[in-house]
Design a binder for these strands. Structure first.
Lengths: 244, 244
DNA sequence: TGCCTTTCAAATGTCAGACCTTTTAATGTC
DNA sequence: GACATTAAAAGGTCTGACATTTGAAAGGCA
């Protein structure tokens, strides 16, 4: 692992990249301890603060964890599904909010992905997943629920749907897409009537999943997508009218 | 934005979280300049190195960029699709390599996602996407291609397929799934016969996409998934036999 | 006046050294 | 042998300094 002190890039960035490469390539394995900060500073011929900045970069990506004390140090960290989830949600949320992604585009992507795991979910869902879906449907029917709480329950419902597929990689991929949609969904004010409609569609989905009916689940998801797009269009139109 | 100096978490982590929240919530907008390191150190009542560690964490997530000089400083960065791509690929690759994800699970997730955008791609693909797919198919048929080059071409082919859907959010989501599979795919040694088979399936996919045949594309993708799983099983079996 | 050069100041990048806190392990005492 | 003490190692933080980069203001010259 070597760095070039004359290159324009920051030394800490170069050091971080060198260590990251070592981890990704497998030269450093999980739970292996890196040299101490002082030793790294010596190896790379830089000062300790510079090494620390590099390590913080890696920590921000959940690539290492640090531990104080006599046997402490920086250790290669096993990237857990939870870490990957939260990173993906942050990235997806920012991507959507910073790049003027249209509601239609995001919605289309989300439901396309969700339909992809509907057949698997219909095939493998446990009673537990089904119970979660039913419980969220019930909650969504309660009067007095705020729009935010309704959206949160919506996310939980769809989360149970994708988890039902029993494929953690799929769940990880979908988590970002579904959760990142939430801020966009929160723009919509759900009338009592639209809530009834959505709950009915959720019920259709849950019913199809319970009956192991992949085709029915996909069709219901498609109807839900269409209805969601309609709601969004109404909100946009009303907003435009109010400002025009 | 406040931090608690008595909490167990690192000060730099707390500061990074506070700034990150401000960005995600929209309190800091794109291209806005953060206070200088000295000012931040003053605000948070910490030293400049601590502030710098926090900023490096944010830089590692592409949330800010820094610029030297008189009008320099840290600026909120617009997260581009390219940045999001590469972050997702890194995360997905590590997730797969560090968590003993089975080939079957990863493969199933990948093809489920890819089938999700097949109908959209069949509907919207441009002549350009089609040409790219054909070109990669041709390359895959060339003799003397290394396994790595074959896999890279495979990735390019599938990339053109998902890009054909014309939905950048979908492309972003799939980039991680497909690229992260590559190291796993590289375990497979492709015989001349299996390459012929794969090229034929690719040809079926391209033909269906060209003919706007969504159902045919999905069916071909499913066959490709089954065949890929078969190849992987053979490799595993042979490897097990050799070591047994 | 207008353009060019010089200078300066602000901000990040880097360094050196010190001290604090945490944690473990070795040491020593009862 | 069990417990308390101590020492050492490592990360966490601070202070102060210097280097480098870069834009803008100041000043000089035609």
């Amino acid at each position: 692992m070597k760095i070039d002190p004359t290159k324009p890039a920051d030394l800490s960035a170069q050091i971080a990249a060198a260590i990251r490469d070592a981890i990704v390539s497998g030269a450093l394995i999980v739970d292996e301890r890196l040299p101490s900060e002082a030793e790294l500073a010596d190896q790379f011929n830089v000062s300790r603060p510079t090494v620390r900045e590099a390590l913080k970069r890696l920590a921000a990506q959940s690539l290492i964890r640090t531990q104080r004390g006599a046997t402490g140090g920086a250790f290669v960290r096993r990237l857990s599904y939870e870490d990957a989830y939260s990173q993906q949600i942050t990235t997806s949320t920012l991507l959507l909010s910073m790049n003027a992604v249209s509601f239609d585009t995001a919605c289309e992507a989300r439901y396309a992905l969700e339909r992809a795991c509907a057949p698997l979910s219909a095939q493998r869902r446990s009673a537990d997943h089904l119970a979660t879906m039913r419980a969220e449907i019930f909650r969504q029917g309660q009067p007095g629920l705020t729009d935010e709480a309704f959206c949160a329950s919506d996310v939980a419902f769809h989360r149970a749907l994708v988890d039902g597929a029993g494929n953690p990689v799929l769940s990880y991929q979908l988590a970002g897409a579904v959760e990142a949609m939430q801020p966009l969904m929160n723009m919509i004010t759900f009338s009592a009537r639209s809530r009834t409609e959505i709950v009915a569609l959720h019920d259709r989905i849950a019913g199809a999943i319970e009956a192991r009916d992949a085709t029915g689940a996909e069709a219901a998801l498609r109807d839900l997508e269409v209805y969601t797009q309609e709601l969004a269009r109404d909100v946009m139109a009303e907003r435009a009218a109010r400002h025009g």
